[in-house]
Structure formats: C-alpha cells, structure tokens
Write a protein that binds this DNA or RNA. Sequence first.
DNA 1: TTGGAATGTCAACAAGGCTGACGTATTCTG
DNA 2: CAGAATACGTCAGCCTTGTTGACATTCCAA
Lengths: 158, 158
Amino acid sequence: MAETLDPLHSEKDLRRGIEAMFFAYRGFTQDPDRILAQHGYGRAHHRALHFIHRESGLNVNTLLSILGVTKQSLNRVLRTLIDHGLVEVSVGTEDRRERNLALTDKGLTLIAELSEAQAARVRAAYAAAGPQAVAGFEAVLEAMMDSDLRDHYGRANR
Amino acid sequence: MAETLDPLHSEKDLRRGIEAMFFAYRGFTQDPDRILAQHGYGRAHHRALHFIHRESGLNVNTLLSILGVTKQSLNRVLRTLIDHGLVEVSVGTEDRRERNLALTDKGLTLIAELSEAQAARVRAAYAAAGPQAVAGFEAVLEAMMDSDLRDHYGRANR
DNA sequence: TTGGAATGTCAACAAGGCTGACGTATTCTG
DNA sequence: CAGAATACGTCAGCCTTGTTGACATTCCAA
C-alpha cells in the first residue's frame, strides 16, 4: 500500500510543505472572506453554512463536532444566521431534544455565492496542476488530518 | 506544460478539496498550538518566529508583507517576543531606519520545538501518501496561492 | 532642507475563540 | 415513576488577534 522504501524528507522539504500550507490557506480563504465582509459575516458563518448545506438537517451536536468549537461559540454564529433568516431550525423527529438545522432559500443563495468563489480558485489550481497532482494533494491532506476529523471528511460526500 | 485536455472537476470533487483543506489545516496547526499554549503564546507568535528564523535579519516591512497583517497587529506580537528575549532587534546597517529581526538562542529553542512538532505530522503524512503525492500536493498548493504570496513562498528556501 | 519612507506606539473596537455556570426540555434507565 | 443523563440555549467574562485612525521619530534622498 504505502511505499516500502520511503525516502527521508529533508528539513527543507518539510519547511516548504509547511509554508505551502500557510500561504495556500491564505489564498484559499481570501475570496469568500471578501464576500462575507460585504454581508457583515465572518469565516465562522461560512463554515457553519457550508456544513449545514452539505448535510441538511444535521443536529447541533454533530455540527459542533465537525467544527471543533464550543457550543457557546457556535451559538453566537448560529443565532445571527437564524435571526437573519439564513438557517432554519426544527425539532428533531426521533429525539425531540435535538434541533435540526437547514438552510433557507436565502441561506442557499449566500452559500452558493461563497462556494462558487472558493471553488473557482480550487478549480483553477486543479487545472493548473493536473489530475495526478490533485490525487496527491488529496492523499497528503487526508493523511494530515486527525483521525477524528477524517471521519467527517468524506461524510455526505458519497 | 499543463494538461492540454483538463478534465472538468465536478462540484463534488471541488467540495472534497475544500473540505480537505479545512480539516487538514486543523490537524496542521494542532500540535504547535498545544505547545504554544503551554508557553502562553498564540499562532501569531509562531508565524513571526518561523519567518524570522527562515530569513534571519529581515526587516519589519518584509515580515509585514509576508504575514499580511497590519503593523499594529504585528507590533503587539513582536513586542512580547522581544520583551521575552526570543527575538533581538538591531538597527539596519544600510538604512538605519530599518530594524533587523533575528532569533536569540531562546527563540531558536522554541521555534525548534514548534517546527519539530509540525514537521513530524507533515513527515508522517508525506510518508503515508508517498513521494509522487507530495509533488502533487505542492503543485496544487502553489497554484492556490495568490501571486504576491507566491513570491514569498520558496524565498530563502533555495 | 524638506518630503516621504520606515518604524513605533497609543487608543479603541470587533470577531471569534475559550471557561464556567445555570436553566429547561426531553429521554433514558434503574 | 423518580432521578440521571442528554441536547440545547444563554449569561457573563476573558483572551488573542485582527482592524482603523492618529501621531511621533528617525533617516534617506532629491
């Protein structure tokens, strides 16, 4: 499966990789950040919208574990999204303690705008680097995740 | 150079890539964050230490453009690093308005600890994914950067 | 010698993390 | 059925790290 004879990566290689993550992440968030600022939202709102969109009807606890923040922190963000009519809350059908989250049409409109801006950059990078590079990109990133995060990755991406 | 017949990447592909960046970046910062917290520092301190280490003697303006923050924001971080004896400032030799930044032994000790923790994860991911994947990883990330950031990437990595 | 560049610093503010504590439904369990 | 546990919301306060705006100092260069 893995290479049996893995070359040792030099300090320089690793530093390059570390800086690549740093600089690329900046580019990665830049376009949506601009749009968010126009609407008076932040990156935290984007993340919430993204994962509610990916898995409509998910409950608060699940979203918390995906985002890896405290409920107080999420609540602040969720509160504004609900009050602004981007997210809609409903009582769980199985367990009525749970709250199911879903995007409204207004929420769908915003996430579409954000996603398209971000996807455009990723699409351009994928096109520039080529399909084989994309496979490598995904493989390294997946290996870099924590195992508990890896469970969420791919979830609802079937 | 680039593929002449680039396949279109589906929405699903792009979403996977976007989430890969999100989850992987979390893993990427996690280990150094723990160490930083023990010392009472934050991610901003790590970034400053990293780039001062990479290019010892660089001036404030250069560091500002690499980090992409305001001078007030950087100054706060730099102030504590200087006061705590991790960074040492000297007046520029050519232009005496400039301040050259360098790490002290104490600063070198901390950045070594941080870098090693972060490099360990990258090294493990590289080993798991294989050398060809690493090349793709770098290619995609480099293509994802803003062009002005790309100038800094690789700088002093010669 | 004067304008602009590089730097430092004060003050105020906002986003978005955190902890701790508490309240209220609702469900599970002994 | 009573009490424990779970899911969620919220109040209060704190921290880091970003922002803007204003202003002082030092020094280079035309």
